[in-house]
């Protein structure tokens, strides 16, 4: 299957690959997986407690090119956003931006899940009321 140029670009030059200190109160970690294809994705955010702005976002994904591109794009998009705005990002936005074919739509779903899980984890750590109950189930610690 041919990947779109944008997928190839993110795959070859993934943005924001890396790790943030999981134990820090400012850091939220989302670890999600798609057992059907065996992909795992970790997305981390560092949130400014005053402004609730995501100042840093990192990811590490083991999976296909589309999964890597989806998470790379997700970190690019959420950086600089307030957490409530980051929750606005829908997997369909990722599908559109990367021109993902139907069989790879689940990669974008995984990226959206990862954003929600990371934000959910941060909220839990910081005692913020949970608005997305789905996120708790997939959040790592």
């Amino acid at each position: 299957m041919a990947y779109s140029d944008k997928v190839v670009d993110h795959y070859n030059n993934p943005r924001n690959v890396g790790t943030l200190d999981k134990s820090s109160a400012e850091v939220g970690t989302g670890l999600v997986g798609a057992p059907e294809c065996g992909d795992v994705m970790r997305l981390q955010i560092r949130v400014n407690p005053e402004t609730q702005v995501i100042e840093e976002a990192k990811f590490k994904t083991f999976g296909c090119g589309s999964a890597i591109a989806s998470s790379s794009l997700a970190t690019e998009w959420i950086k600089g956003r307030k957490i409530e705005d980051a929750l606005e990002i829908k997997n369909t936005d990722i599908v559109k931006e990367l021109s993902l074919p139907p069989v790879k739509i689940h990669c974008s779903v995984l990226a959206e899940d990862a954003i929600r899980a990371a934000i959910g984890d941060w909220k839990k750590k910081n005692g913020v009321a949970e608005t997305a109950p789905v996120a708790v189930a997939t959040a790592a610690n």
């Binding site: 999600v32 795992v40 997939t138 959040a139 790592a140």
Partner: peptide
């Protein structure tokens, strides 16, 4: 089903 992706399994696989 959220039980399909248990956190401990994901941790281990990661």
């Amino acid at each position: 089903d959220p039980s399909r992706a248990p956190a401990d399994l994901l941790e281990e696989v990661f």
